[in-house]
Computed example of a mutant assay.
Amino acid sequence: MSYRDVRRRLTAGQAREWALEALQRPLSAVRHPLGFVCLPLERDGDEGVCVHLWTGSLVHAESTTSQIHCHSWDLFSHVLYGQIRNVHVIVADAGAEATHRVFEVVSDASGDRISPTGRTVRHTTGLVEVFGPGDTYTLPAGRFHSSVVPEGGEAATIALGRGRPGSHDLSLGPLDAGPHRVSRQHLDPGETALAVRLVTARLT
C-alpha cells in the first residue's frame, strides 16, 4: 500500500483498521534515539510510513544530541492512542551567548552519521500543541520541534513522511560535541512481538 493510499485511509477515519492490518506483517523494529520504538511499515523512495510507539515496557535508545530536531521531510501524524505534545522550538543564531550547536544527521540502514555544523544557536519554546486519540497533525520540513509524551505515558502514532528536496535532518546538541556515528539498535524478535502486542491491545 502506497503513502497516498495510507493517507487516504487515515483521512477517511480508518486509522485503527489500517494499523491492525499492517501490524500483522513481518516487521523489524528499531529503537529511535528520540525515545520511541519505530515500526517501519511502508517505504517507497522519499515516502515512508511507520508506527511510533512510546512505552515504558521496552528499553529506549539514548540521544547523543537532544530531543530538539527538524526533519528533511513533511510530517503527517495520526495519534492512535495516548497524548502527544508537539512542542515548536524557536531557534536563533547566537555568538558568544550560544547554548547549542546545530548538527546534521544523515541516516542509512545501519545508523546515523551526526556532523557538527558551524551554526551555533539559542532556543526558546514556541507553540505547544496537544493531541489525543484520533487527532491528526502536520509539520513541514525544516521546523524545529520535539515530540513529548507525558511522564509515564503510553502513546502510539502513525507517522507519514514525504521528503522535501533540499531539506536536511538537523538536531540541536552540545556546543563542543564532535562528529560521530550512532548505530541502529534493532529490537530482537521477542521485543518486536511485544511492541506489536502493546499497540494492537490498545486498538482492539
Rank of each mutant, 00 (worst) to 15 (best):
residue 35 G to L: 08
residue 110 S to R: 14
residue 56 G to N: 09
residue 98 A to L: 07
residue 56 G to Q: 10
residue 109 A to N: 11
residue 118 G to Y: 01
residue 125 T to D: 11
residue 189 P to N: 04
residue 137 Y to E: 02
residue 134 G to S: 01
residue 51 V to F: 07
residue 166 G to W: 12
residue 150 P to W: 06
residue 7 R to D: 06
residue 42 E to H: 13
residue 156 A to V: 08
residue 114 I to T: 06
residue 2 S to Y: 03
residue 121 V to W: 02
residue 174 P to M: 00
residue 193 A to N: 10
residue 54 W to V: 08
residue 68 I to E: 09
residue 61 A to L: 01
residue 37 V to W: 00
residue 35 G to I: 08
residue 23 L to D: 06
residue 50 C to E: 12
residue 5 D to Q: 14
residue 149 V to M: 08
residue 174 P to V: 02
residue 60 H to W: 04
residue 89 V to D: 10
residue 73 W to T: 10
residue 104 E to S: 10
residue 72 S to V: 00
residue 133 P to F: 00
residue 58 L to K: 01
residue 8 R to K: 14
residue 85 R to K: 12
residue 91 V to M: 02
residue 198 L to A: 07
residue 134 G to I: 01
residue 71 H to G: 09
residue 104 E to M: 04
residue 25 R to F: 03
residue 199 V to S: 00
residue 49 V to L: 11
residue 185 Q to N: 04
residue 173 G to N: 05
residue 17 E to D: 13
residue 33 P to H: 05
residue 137 Y to A: 00
residue 93 D to W: 03
residue 183 S to P: 10
residue 78 H to F: 05
residue 76 F to K: 02
residue 107 S to A: 14
residue 5 D to K: 14
residue 160 L to W: 01
residue 39 L to P: 04
residue 15 A to P: 03
residue 144 F to Y: 15
residue 157 T to N: 09
residue 144 F to C: 12
residue 24 Q to T: 09
